[in-house]
Design a protein around this nucleic acid. Structure first.
Length: 283
DNA sequence: CCTCATTCCTGCGGGC
DNA sequence: TGCCCGCAGGAATGAG
């Protein structure tokens, strides 16, 4: 599941593989992949053809490539999306959605997505900050992210802590897995009322978020393969370093209590019932 | 504006 | 053996 560390890994890959190159041809293999491009598939292809990619940027889990037209190619990986750079003679996989080839004849950029929750669009005039991202909050690694402003905004919410963490308008880049990991590190329960958090607890939460994401990024992320190495999306960090997510029934690495899984927002929350005490009063 | 439930999608694995 | 169903989840959407 690509969250901030995985998307940042992809961004770095794009920086090395597609920035400075000029699009020759665009092939949309599955219309759903460009469903957010309202003018349609033909317009999407035309808006990219002949354009040079100037940079690779990211906010939260969104990626965008500013173009020399002033537009931006916006991409979101959803749950299962991958952006991979592959030579043209590498056979197409079963989930190829969009192929972008370049005038230099080098590796293609392929958008591959099994579950098609992800997608691409060209945002007119969006090179600086694409319109679809304007309601997305800063991520915890953005230099403009202000911990005090975040603390105030978080405590002003009338909801549970994990709901707020997953709200990309409040803070971006956090998904279900890293939310659970950060909550475990901060010893906070997922349904803790945001309004009752102390400044120290929010500080611990942000330290947990940044800590786990920094470590994940150092582990190399998981989703980008191409000119680098073929990376197995499930290996490495996922296998060895998670403390809460996916560890139902396994001992907490701090206290030994069995990790619990509970249904939450059509997904799951994993937590230690001893370290992360359930809040007393219901919200 | 704020909060929250619903919906989109497909492969996998458990249960019978 | 094969089928059914639940599960995985990011974010847009609309209701209240």
């Amino acid at each position: 599941m690509p969250e901030l560390p995985e998307v940042e890994t992809v961004r770095r890959g794009l920086e090395h593989t597609v920035v400075g190159r000029t699009v020759a041809r665009v092939e949309v293999r599955h219309d759903r992949a460009v469903r957010r491009h309202v003018p349609g598939v033909g317009d999407f292809e035309a808006a990219l053809r002949g354009r040079t990619i100037l940079a690779a940027r990211r906010r939260g889990k969104f990626l965008w490539l500013p173009l020399d037209s002033g537009d931006a190619l916006v991409a979101h990986l959803g749950m299962s999306g991958q952006l991979v750079a592959l030579a043209a003679d590498v056979p197409d996989g079963p989930h190829l959605r969009v192929r972008i080839s370049f005038t230099d004849g080098g590796p293609e950029l392929r958008f591959v997505d099994q579950r098609t929750f992800g997608g691409m669009q060209v945002d007119p005039g969006g090179a600086e900050l694409p319109h679809p991202l304007r309601h997305i909050g800063l991520d915890p690694f953005d230099p403009r992210f202000d911990d005090k402003v975040f603390t105030q905004a978080l405590r002003a919410r009338r909801t549970g802590l994990k709901r707020a963490m997953l709200d990309q308008g409040l803070v971006s880049g956090i998904g279900n897995m890293y939310a659970d990991e950060a909550l475990w590190r901060a010893k906070l329960h997922y349904d803790r009322p945001t309004a009752s958090l102390t400044t120290g607890q929010v500080k611990a939460l942000l330290a947990g978020v940044r800590g786990v994401m920094t470590e994940a990024l150092a582990a190399g992320g998981t989703t980008f393969d191409g000119l680098y190495v073929n990376v197995n999306g499930q290996s490495g960090y996922f296998e060895v370093s998670l403390d809460a997510y996916g560890r139902e029934g396994e001992p907490c690495r701090r206290c030994g209590t069995a990790i619990v899984r509970e249904p939450f927002m059509n997904r799951s929350s994993f937590f230690c019932p001893y370290c992360q005490k359930r809040p007393r009063q219901a919200r």
